Amino acid sequence: MNTQSPEDITPPNGPLADIRAAITQSEKIAGRPARSTTLIAISKTKPVEAIEALIDQGQLTFGENRVQEAAAKFPNLRARHPGLELHMVGQLQSNKADDAVAQFDVIHSVDRPSLAKALAAAMSKAGRQLPCFVQVNIGDEPQKGGCAISDLPDLLVQARALGLPVIGLMAVPPADVESAPYFALLAKLARDCGLDQLSMGMSGDFETAVRIGATHIRIGSALFGAR
C-alpha cells in the first residue's frame, strides 16, 4: 500500500493540508511514528475533476463504495496517474467479487463467509492478492453491514483457511455518539485476533481514531464538501 509523503507539494492551506496536519498532530500525541496513518479520500459520488484536484495536491489513495462507480471513473484516472491506489469501502455483493478484484487494490468490507469465499476464488483466478479488512458491526446495528462481534473469530478462521490475506479490522461506529469506546473495542478485537491494521475514523472523528490506533482513516466530506 502507498506510503504517502507529499507534504512538499501540498498547498500551505486548504482541507487536505489541514487534515494532514491534524493527522500528524494526533500521531504525535499518541506517540506514534509520523506518517503511520493512511489517509483514504472517499470519492464516492464525486466527479473526476474533484478527484484530480486532490491528485494534483499529492493525494494518491482513494476509496469508493460501489464497483460500478469505480469502474466508470478510475481506469482513465489510473492511466493518467499510475501511482493511484483504490480501496473498496462499501458493502460488496458476492457476485461482484470478480469485478472488485479487478478494480480495487484493498477491500475493507469482508463481512461473511460467502463473500470471503467469492473473493478468494476471484483473487486466485485473477492472480492478484488484495489485502482485506474484516468489517465488524461494532455497534450491533441491524441496518449496518459487518459481522457480529461474536461471529468474528469463526469468520477469520474461515477467511484464513481460504487463503484470504486479512490484514485488519474495519468498523463504522454508531452515529451521534462518542466514537472513542467503539474505536477502543475494535483495537482490542484486532489485538486479540493477531491483527495490527485498523480501518476506522471518518471526517468527524478521525483525530480520535488516530490517537486510538487507526492505520487507515476514511475521509469524504471534510475533503470534498457535503454531498
Rank of each mutant, 00 (worst) to 15 (best):
1 M>E: 10
4 Q>H: 11
6 P>F: 12
10 T>A: 12
12 P>I: 07
15 P>L: 10
16 L>Q: 01
18 D>W: 00
20 R>G: 05
21 A>E: 13
22 A>D: 10
23 I>T: 03
27 E>I: 03
27 E>W: 02
28 K>L: 11
34 A>G: 13
34 A>S: 14
36 S>H: 06
37 T>I: 06
39 L>Y: 01
39 L>V: 04
40 I>Q: 03
42 I>K: 00
43 S>N: 09
43 S>T: 11
45 T>Y: 13
49 E>F: 06
49 E>N: 09
49 E>A: 15
50 A>W: 02
50 A>Y: 02
53 A>Y: 02
64 E>K: 10
65 N>I: 05
70 A>T: 04
74 F>D: 01
74 F>R: 05
74 F>N: 03
80 R>K: 15
81 H>Q: 08
81 H>S: 09
81 H>C: 05
85 E>Y: 08
89 V>F: 07
93 Q>P: 05
95 N>D: 13
100 A>I: 11
100 A>M: 13
101 V>H: 08
101 V>W: 02
102 A>M: 10
102 A>L: 14
103 Q>P: 06
109 S>M: 09
109 S>C: 12
112 R>N: 10
117 K>Y: 00
120 A>N: 13
126 A>Q: 14
126 A>G: 11
133 F>P: 00
134 V>W: 00
134 V>H: 01
142 P>Q: 10
146 G>K: 00
150 S>P: 00
151 D>G: 06
151 D>F: 01
154 D>K: 13
155 L>H: 05
155 L>V: 07
156 L>H: 01
156 L>T: 00
157 V>T: 14
162 L>W: 00
165 P>T: 08
167 I>A: 09
173 P>W: 00
175 A>S: 14
177 V>P: 01
179 S>K: 10
179 S>L: 04
179 S>C: 11
180 A>F: 00
182 Y>P: 01
183 F>A: 08
183 F>D: 03
185 L>M: 15
189 L>Y: 05
192 D>N: 15
194 G>F: 09
195 L>N: 07
195 L>D: 05
200 M>L: 12
201 G>T: 08
201 G>E: 09
204 G>F: 10
208 T>I: 15
214 A>I: 03
221 S>P: 02
225 G>W: 08
226 A>L: 13
226 A>W: 00
227 R>M: 07
